[in-house]
Design a protein around this nucleic acid. Structure first.
Lengths: 202, 202
DNA sequence: CTTTTGACTTCTGAAGTAAAAAAGTCAAAT
DNA sequence: ATTTGACTTTTTTACTTCAGAAGTCAAAAG
């Protein structure tokens, strides 16, 4: 199975380029050159740029959810688990900044697959959060609550804050970005406080 | 003082145009025509477009804060007062949609006065909210809290949600906008719940 | 003296255009 | 099964043009 090897190589090279310069500013020829092949050879494995960027997206989404699940499982409480997600997202954004940017307004407008992928990710993430919240209710940490609803509110809040930075075309500097994350956490902290059983509050 | 009369008339006409079509898409000639005068006559009162739009902005900000203060005073509790602000903002946005849009990314980039005005409004609004929160603490509704910090978090949350809609260039339809407001309220509700004294919770 | 106007210059944004670069295709070669 | 050379089509970019809007000012009007 040399073919799968090549495909993996190509994805790797594509991610490197995409993460630095964004999908738009990366040409297939560049990726091919990085691997010592021509764009036609590359086209044999990924017939067009879309299929390549979709494959990259899928790979990265997998990595993201692996991290999310790990953090949700490790965190000692549901409240901390939720707040951890801000960190996970931050790490991800820093690693794949240009890709995330591209996944935002840029790709949203070609409403086809990108929007679906986004919606899928949203559903999956809120579902995981909701599960963790239920768990928190079960353990007596949290009051009874409508977990899907709360999860969805948490998601929207995080997304909203992110849009503030990502929505604009300028590239956020590290400081701005860090501050934003801590604001997000502070807000989520307040939200989670309202959901805690008294016994748990500090 | 006929001059002040004229100025008021001009402002009125300008607001009508600006609110519908935005500052950019409105020409001084149009405003002047609405009033049966020429743009040169108009220029006598407002030497350039900037001074006119700044005057309009100032007028509208005053209206906004008048509403805000009224709502903050009327609301039976601090929590409700905070949530009312979402409604005030919504009403305002609907009334002056194109102006608010213009005040967003468009004007932000000419970082001079617009950014200052925005920052001023932020400070004033968070200050009012903080006051109201302190009042809530005083009346035993809320736990002791860092009022300026919480106010600032509330402000950021509201702003973040707004950016989601305003930040994009497309014009939000009424449904989207209403939904967004109720999401905002739900989040604020959770935040405020975390700050309430037990006796007040339902 | 205050206000308005006609005639003017300068500036900005939208539309168009041509060249370059990238994407995508395919029959032939390896 | 994979790669390539030669090709066509599509997208970007840089540049040009032009109309309409902004802004100026001396002179006119009340």
């Amino acid at each position: 199975m040399e073919a799968n090897d090549k495909r993996a190589q190509i994805l790797e090279a594509a991610i490197r380029r995409f993460a630095h310069f964004g999908v738009q500013k990366t040409t297939l020829t560049e990726i091919a050159d990085d691997l010592g092949m021509t764009k036609q050879a590359l086209a044999y494995y990924y017939p067009d740029k879309n299929s390549l960027s979709e494959a990259v997206e899928a790979l990265i989404l997998t990595e993201f959810f692996t991290n999310v699940e790990a953090h949700l499982a490790q965190a000692p409480s549901a409240a901390e688990a939720i707040m951890d997600l801000v960190e996970v997202k931050k790490t991800f954004f820093e690693k794949y900044a240009m890709l995330m940017r591209a996944a935002g307004p840029e790709l949203m407008q070609q409403h086809s697959k990108a929007a679906d992928a986004r919606e899928g990710a949203r559903q999956r993430l809120t579902h995981l959060m909701a599960q963790r919240l239920e768990q928190g209710v079960g353990s007596g940490e949290l009051k009874p609550l409508n977990a899907p609803e709360v999860a969805s509110l948490v998601f929207d809040t995080m997304t909203a804050f992110e849009q503030c930075v990502v929505g604009r075309q300028m590239i956020p500097d590290a400081r701005t970005f860090s501050e934003l994350c801590s604001r997000q956490k502070a807000v989520l902290q307040l939200m989670m406080n309202g959901l805690r059983e008294e016994a748990w509050k500090n």
